[in-house]
């Protein structure tokens, strides 16, 4: 887009919106004009909501989930099983696992996965805090719930490798989320890679 077409304030809004995931320059422009057309009492609450959320929401000191207090609701809940710890990449993964109502343990959010190409090494993830939690807390099983992608897999391998040197003689059961078929789906429509994984991970009945 040629420079100087928009006033600096409008251009700034377009540029900021275009930084959002899934939003390109055209969508940013459309959103900007939509916002500018709105009466102030409808447009400003969005700005206020962003400000309020950014000021109030921070990372849980213990697990790095999103929270408005020092500790998130899950870490504060005494009914959660303290012997189970599930490692995930992002806070949104906690939400997905919580929706299952199958898991009653604690979480640890890494904030991403190892990817040297993107400059993400162990120091950029909450790994030190994970290992210090494991040495202090009465965890008996560590569930590695990183994504079934190459980066997620390398992160899982890195954690299990480091665990042996961190814990000394103490034994913790380390497990990985299973990969397989979606429930309620047809075998016919499953992609070959997933189906192959499901075959490898088949269970005794």
């Amino acid at each position: 887009m040629a420079g100087g077409l928009f006033s600096p304030a409008v251009q700034r809004l377009i540029d900021e919106l275009a930084k959002l995931p899934g939003v390109g320059p055209k969508t940013a422009q459309r959103l900007t004009f939509y916002l500018l057309k709105l009466p102030p009492e409808e447009a400003l609450p969005l700005a206020q909501a962003i400000t309020a959320a950014k000021e109030a929401v921070r990372f849980c000191h213990r697990c790095f989930n999103l929270t408005e207090q020092d500790l998130c609701a899950i870490c504060q809940d005494p009914r959660r099983d303290q012997s189970l710890l599930c490692v995930v990449e992002e806070p949104s993964d906690v939400l997905s696992l919580e929706r299952t109502h199958e898991y009653r343990g604690l979480y640890h959010v890494l904030g991403g996965a190892l990817s040297p190409l993107d400059g993400i090494g162990p120091d950029r993830l909450h790994l030190d805090t994970l290992f210090s939690r494991l040495s202090k807390e009465p965890v008996q099983e560590l569930i590695i719930g990183t994504n079934p992608s190459l980066a997620g897999e390398a992160t899982a391998l890195f954690i299990s490798e480091q665990l042996h040197s961190t814990l000394g003689g103490r034994l913790i059961r380390v497990t990985r989320l299973a990969a397989g078929l979606p429930v309620g789906g047809d075998l016919e429509y499953a992609d070959e890679v997933t189906l192959g994984k499901a075959l490898l991970g088949r269970r005794e009945m």
Binding site: L114, P116, G121, P122, L150, E153, A154
Partner: peptide, 29 residues
């Protein structure tokens, strides 16, 4: 596809003079 992905990641590590522990997961893959 997986081999190519892991190779690019290990080569990125080689350029960055990182500690050995970081190489292990990529080398395993």
């Amino acid at each position: 596809s997986r081999y190519g992905g892991a190779l690019a990641q290990r080569n990125a590590l080689l350029q960055g003079g990182t500690v050995d522990a970081q190489h292990k997961p990529w080398e395993a893959i």
